[in-house]
Simulated assay, not measured.
Amino acid sequence: MTQDNALRARDRLPDALRVLLEQFPRDMWESHRNFAGLVEFWLDRHLMFRRLTEALREDAEAGQDRKIDPQAMRARLSRYGGMLVGQLHGHHQIEDAHYFPVLARREARLETGFAILDKDHHAMDGLLARFTESANAVLQGGEPGPFRKELLSFERLLHRHLEDEEDLIVPVILKHGAEGLH
């Protein structure tokens, strides 16, 4: 993988890895016969991650502006932050151990894409560690400003990864079905 394909450096997957996305564009996913079930569930998980980061960002901004009770903000940060970190780790483990190998065998020409996504997961381990350290500082009474800054960086990279993952994986599942992935 080149540095250009590193999570921090890219603005999308290389065109060579988006070939199935051309055949299965996003605007037709929900109407495809293979959408219901696994794809729908998997996209819902991604939506949950996006919503959690959005809620955390809104709370951090409200905390900076003194528009939320600090104790309430910390309670929400503990709940939503813990959920985000735990669920992301589990999600990535399942993808790395099961989904990515199966899907890469189904579309060998996209194997590089799965390697990029796997590298993203390793990069996200460091991002999650920094996120957790920054969140813990707020939970211990620190100001939300530094956490918000860390969260903005984390959120941008998480969204980049989720979008690229969807662009690669959903078309493969739509094309081949979800057999052997459950």
Rank of each mutant, 00 (worst) to 15 (best):
His122Gly: 14
Phe41Glu: 13
Leu103Gly: 02
Leu158Ile: 12
Gly180Met: 06
Asp27Ala: 03
Val172Ala: 03
Ser153Leu: 10
Arg8His: 14
Lys175Asp: 10
Gln140Val: 00
Glu61His: 15
Glu150Phe: 00
Arg148Asp: 10
Thr2Ile: 09
Phe147Gln: 08
Pro101Lys: 13
Leu38Gln: 01
Gln93Ile: 06
Leu158Gln: 12
Asp69Pro: 10
Val172Gly: 02
Asp44Phe: 01
Leu127Ala: 09
Ala135Gln: 05
Met124His: 06
Leu127His: 08
Gly86Tyr: 02
Pro25Gly: 11
Ala123Arg: 13
Thr112Trp: 09
Arg74Pro: 09
Pro101Met: 13
Asp125Leu: 09
Glu111Tyr: 00
Leu158Pro: 09
Ala9Thr: 12
Lys67Thr: 07
Leu77Pro: 12
Tyr80Ala: 09
His121Thr: 02
Gln64Leu: 07
His176Arg: 13
Asp167Ile: 02
Gly177Thr: 07
Leu17Val: 07
His46Glu: 15
Glu179Cys: 03
Gly90Ile: 05
Glu61Trp: 14
Arg76His: 00
Ser153Ile: 03
Thr132Pro: 02
Leu103Glu: 02
Val170Gly: 09
Phe24Gly: 10
Gly90Phe: 06
Ala75Gln: 15
Arg130Met: 09
Pro14Leu: 10
Ala75Ile: 00
Gly82Gln: 12
Gln93Met: 03
Arg105Asp: 01
Asp11Ser: 14
Gly126Lys: 12
His176Thr: 11
Pro146Leu: 05
Met28Glu: 11
His122Ser: 13
Met83Trp: 07
Ala16Thr: 05
Asp120Lys: 11
His92Pro: 02
Ser153Lys: 14
Ala55Val: 11
Gly37Leu: 07
Val172Ile: 11
Arg76Asn: 05
Asn136Met: 06
Phe41Pro: 03
His92Leu: 06
Ile94Arg: 15
Pro146Ile: 07
Ala55Lys: 12
Tyr80Cys: 05
Pro25Trp: 08
Val138Cys: 10
Leu38Ile: 06
Arg18Leu: 14
Glu155Thr: 15
Ile94Ser: 14
Arg26Phe: 04
Leu84Lys: 08
Thr2Asn: 09
Gly63Glu: 04
Arg33Gly: 00
Asp59Ala: 15
Thr2Gln: 10
Glu107Leu: 01
His89Ile: 08
Arg10Leu: 07
Phe154His: 04
Leu17Ile: 04
Ala9Phe: 11
Ala104Arg: 04
Asp11Met: 09
Leu43Thr: 07
Leu117Thr: 11
Phe100Gln: 01
Glu30Thr: 00
Arg106His: 02
Val170Arg: 04
His176Tyr: 13
Phe35Tyr: 15
Glu22Cys: 09
His182Pro: 05
Arg50Ile: 07
Asp164Ala: 02
Asp15Gly: 01
Arg148Asn: 04
Glu155Val: 00
Thr132Lys: 03
Met73Gln: 15
Val19Pro: 01
Pro171Glu: 15
Gly180Ser: 09
Leu127Lys: 05
Met83Ala: 14
His89Cys: 04
Ala108Tyr: 11
Ile116Ser: 08
Leu56His: 03
Met83Arg: 11
Asn136Gly: 09
Leu168Trp: 00
Ala60Ser: 08
Glu155Ser: 15
Gln140Asn: 13
Gln23Tyr: 10
Gly37Gln: 05
Gly86Asp: 10
Arg26Cys: 09
Ala135Trp: 08
Phe147Gly: 04
Glu30His: 03
His159Gln: 11
Tyr99Asn: 13
